[in-house]
Amino acid sequence: MIAQSFSYYKPATFKEAIDIFGQLQSEGKKPLYYAGGTEIISMTRKELLRPDALIDIKEIAECRELYEDGDYICYGSALPLTKVIEAPYFPLLSKVARTVADHTVRNRLTLGGNICGRLPYREAVLPFLLSDSLAVIGSKDGIRTESIATAYDKRFLLTEGDLLLQLKVDKQSAALPYHSIRKERNGSVDYPLLHAAAMYTDSGLKLAVSGLCAFPFRAELIEEALKGSILNTVQNKLNELLPSSIKQDHLASAEYRGALFNLALSELVSKKGGTVNA
């Protein structure tokens, strides 16, 4: 049972959504876009989040689209993960998204909610970080499309009131060979201690990681290092190559997470097309 009060709006268009967001804000209220609700409901119940209004985006046509055309595959942000997983276009995304929460929760939990959520894992973003992908963002100035490289740094860089409408992935990069490894404390229905996903291109391995640090990231420094040096060297100087220190919390020590990451690196490198000697 949720003990606080907020109001609920279900706009039919993204324009309406943006407008009502702005309007509520100008009234001094704190609105939130509401997608699968899995995070918002648990956090409001626990009083960890206190929105004044929820703006449900699930009726907005753009947010529900799922199609491929020309060069791109398009995923609406309000698609439940189950739908994303079942779509045949992007095998790594299906594999990675399958590990989030559990099957029943994934029937509600959305792609956009996972990626824009507050938790440090946001695993569904990993495949997008690895491919040439675009974020379609609705804002009060209309719709803009940004490359993931500029739209994401530790988290999605959305201005308050911006709405992630869609994610688009270049078909060719979605079809690249891939591998991913997820490790939990002890049992699969849990947050990851480590989730490492890789895609293999002619120029080397691309790597994105969740669970290891306080946010999911594309491990560009490691990708570069792997091109130049042998794996062992890379593994020995992880500290320099990671965007922040390795997380230490009640689920695992930094030491163990680091060990898992090194094991994963070995496996990912040995798996396919690695340009370095393992």
């Binding site: 609920y8 699968g36 609700g37 899995t38 029937n107």
Partner: peptide, 21 residues
């Protein structure tokens, strides 16, 4: 959302009714 004891079907699809308005 963790235990599934509240599961109901929404248009035939199982969902956790504690995580839905």
């Amino acid at each position: 959302g963790d235990c599934g004891a509240c599961t109901v079907l929404l248009d035939g699809v199982p969902i956790k009714s504690c995580l839905m308005l």
